[in-house]
Design a protein around this nucleic acid. Structure first.
Length: 498
DNA sequence: GTGCGATTAAG
DNA sequence: TTAATCGCA
């Protein structure tokens, strides 16, 4: 077979293009970078430390430090691909800086990855408009999920609102094409020369150093790769270990998925064959990746969830408010609720920016259904403190816990913080790590110190109300109040099962 | 001959 | 996902 009209190899559409990196801080298996290199003779790479985002963050923010370190590594990785190349880094308002850079460089196109968070969509619309005004194209590509937007739909062409059928359709649609990686290295000669300039330091950006270095959270694509390798050593146990915060069960890849220092295709491509081979751990973990796609898709198709309940009737609920509510919230934030598992979990997020997934559900349930506080308060707290904060997943998780979401837990299902503790931290290993003041309590008493005999408290050097708080609410009473509070959403025939 | 939805191919 | 091609009205 001869001259099969060789498609695109020499058909560079543009002389100059820009790849605008955002939440995709890697130089391999990268959709936008691939397409840019393929269609432009010269490709400039840029990252903007966006003042529009950074100015609203606390001055000590582990994520900024993680991003800064990852950007340094990305710059080096680009130079490793092509010695004359590199990353242009700016500290500016991205919506203005990108069009300005396109003008300076005489670029005809800008390439970037999809970001379907409402603020990112708004920013990209502004950029698209400004670029169009100059005759410059903005081309964006799916990169951070396997399936997005309207790729997985029901038979009726509607987005899924229930996870299990979504997952079935997701798995059915999956094939090796969607897991294939985008080869970048082969086109590295199209990377444009870049004057070597240092990436702004954390101090240049106006931020303080955090304790990130002391946490076991290696940044950059190399850090991501390291965690991937470590996790796949234990993935076959994932289903059995993932619910126990005292055990190293999870992948800890959330933050790398958030900033694109790992490739979702690579992860899914590694887990999928193990799933097919029947490794339960891999199947359960793959499901977690599907949950991530699910919530990204929910946010994209139902953007109102960023403001209010997925199920509108849940916006009728009257939450606790005023000064007492603020005090309860403050106690929750500070890990001063008197429920050890809740408090240990809050200590974990406050000290590390990470919280075990099981505990995210426990503290969320506690905030909403024991304290009677608006789930958005908790959502906002997580948004500020979680290293791996992702609007879609965080919102999905909080709406799940508050029962207001799609496929959420029923409103009358209320976690008992003590039995969760007994079940998932039976030896109090996790509690003792984060609440050393309770370390000497017995396994029987550590989940609910207020039930311990005075003798035991004394022997363990615990003084309730002094070294450790009394419970700020009684769970049983709170449970009753919550059922009343949620009565406004009750469907005429729905009967509570408990 | 045209046009648009469906299908298929491509990292 | 995007891009190209197909196929039937």
């Amino acid at each position: 077979m001869l001259a099969r009209a060789t498609p695109k190899t020499s058909d560079t559409e543009f002389t100059t293009g820009i790849v605008w990196f955002r939440r995709d801080l890697r130089s391999f298996d990268h959709a936008a970078l691939y397409h840019a290199l393929k269609t432009c003779r010269q490709v400039h790479c840029v990252f903007v430390f966006d003042k529009e985002i950074l100015d609203h963050l606390p001055r000590a923010d582990r994520r900024v430090e993680f991003i800064q370190a990852s950007v340094v590594e990305l710059d080096a990785a680009l130079r490793a691909l092509q010695p004359s190349a590199g990353l242009v880094t700016l500290h500016a308002v991205a919506a203005q800086a990108i069009p300005a850079l396109a003008k300076t460089l005489h670029a005809q196109a800008v390439f970037a990855s999809h970001d379907d968070e409402p603020q990112a969509l708004a920013r990209d619309a502004v950029v698209r408009g400004a670029l169009a005004h100059m005759g410059v194209a903005l081309r964006t590509y799916k990169d951070h999920v396997i399936f997005e937007r309207k790729e997985v739909l029901t038979q009726q062409g509607k987005p899924y609102g229930v996870f299990t059928p979504y997952k079935n359709a997701w798995l059915k649609k999956l094939d090796d094409f969607y897991l294939k990686s985008y080869p970048v290295a082969a086109y590295a000669t199209h990377l444009a020369p870049c004057e070597r300039q240092p990436v702004p330091s954390l101090q240049d950006l106006g931020f303080e150093t955090t304790n990130l270095a002391s946490l076991k959270l290696p940044a950059g694509a190399s850090g991501g790769q390291q965690l991937v390798e470590e996790f796949f050593e234990r993935i076959e146990h994932y289903h059995a270990t993932r619910d126990f915060p005292g055990i190293k069960g999870p992948s800890y890849l959330g933050v790398h998925l958030r900033f694109g220092t790992v490739s979702i295709r690579q992860l899914a491509a590694m887990a999928y064959p193990l799933h097919l081979q029947g490794f339960q751990g891999a199947s359960v973990w793959l499901s977690e990746l599907v949950w991530r796609d699910f919530y990204v898709q929910i946010l994209s198709n139902f953007p109102h969830v960023a403001q209010g309940a997925f199920k509108p009737e849940y916006d009728q609920i009257a939450w606790q408010h005023g000064k007492p509510a603020k005090a309860l919230f403050e106690a929750w934030c500070q890990g001063q609720t008197g429920y050890p598992l809740v408090d240990a979990a809050m200590a974990q997020i406050n000290q590390t920016g990470y919280m075990h997934n099981r505990l995210r559900m426990v503290v969320a349930s506690f905030l909403v259904k024991d304290l009677g506080l608006d789930w958005r308060w908790g959502e906002a707290y997580f948004a500020e403190h979680l290293n791996d904060f992702d609007l879609a997943s965080n919102n999905g998780g909080w709406q799940w816990a508050s029962s207001s979401g799609c496929d959420a837990q029923p409103y009358f299902r209320i976690f008992n913080p003590t039995s969760q503790s007994e079940k998932f931290d039976p030896e109090g290993k996790f509690i003792r790590r984060y609440l050393p003041q309770l370390a000497k309590l017995s396994n029987a008493a550590i989940h609910a110190p207020w039930t311990a005999k005075p003798m035991e408290l004394q022997a363990a050097e615990v003084v309730l109300g002094k070294t450790y708080p009394q419970p700020i609410v009684a769970h049983d009473a709170a449970r009753t109040r919550t059922l009343l509070r949620y009565a406004v959403v009750k469907k005429p025939h729905a009967l509570p099962d408990a």
